[in-house]
Design a protein around this nucleic acid. Structure first.
Length: 162
DNA sequence: ATCGTCATATGAA
DNA sequence: TTCATATGACGAT
């Protein structure tokens, strides 16, 4: 695993790469564990880091990334991976509820479990867990802090209550 | 509008 | 098996 600081207009995220791609993304300030690194990053990882930065800037600006780094999400359970896949199908500017996703997956009573899977999402912003609201358009939660969720939704002109 | 309570799926300890 | 969840539905207040 190679970790690299990704600086954006919203602060310095920390990206963690395996040989297969981006495996985890930490919000700015989450312990500032970034600093070092980068010195052992090969050309491949540096290229992915560049794609990651551009993709993040796009999402922060409310638009779709033109290119994506490869995402390595094999860390999750089968259920979590199905949820994360469903999240990637929510287009920019749209939203779904935890319950809707549960029904899509064929487990209509698993809304709460979907919420847990969202909380376990290793790559926020690029796997758009911020586009999942609770029923009735209520905001729900967000592991990186609700301010992030509000800001991202506002940028995409998604309405929410709360 | 808000609050308590229950039902439920999933995952970690 | 027990505990915690980024839920949801329902009823009482």
């Amino acid at each position: 695993m190679i970790s690299i600081a990704i600086s954006t207009s919203a602060g310095a995220f920390t990206a963690h790469y395996t040989s297969r791609g981006l495996a985890r993304l930490d919000f700015p300030n989450e312990r500032q564990r970034s600093a070092a690194v980068a010195h052992d990053a090969n050309a491949q990882v540096r290229a992915w880091a560049s794609l990651t930065r551009d993709a993040l800037e796009a999402v922060l600006g409310g638009s779709d990334p033109a290119k994506w780094p490869p995402l390595d999400v094999q860390s999750g359970t089968a259920f979590q991976q199905k949820v994360w896949e469903a999240l990637r199908n929510i287009g920019r500017g749209r939203s779904k509820s935890y319950g809707e996703i549960a029904r899509e997956l064929g487990t209509p009573n698993a809304a709460r479990a979907v919420g847990s899977a969202c909380g376990a999402n290793p790559i926020p912003l690029l796997i758009p867990c911020h586009r999942v609201l609770a029923s009735g358009g209520k905001l729900g939660g967000f592991s990186g802090g609700l301010d992030w969720k509000k800001r991202l939704l506002s940028r995409e002109l998604v309405a929410f209550s709360g």
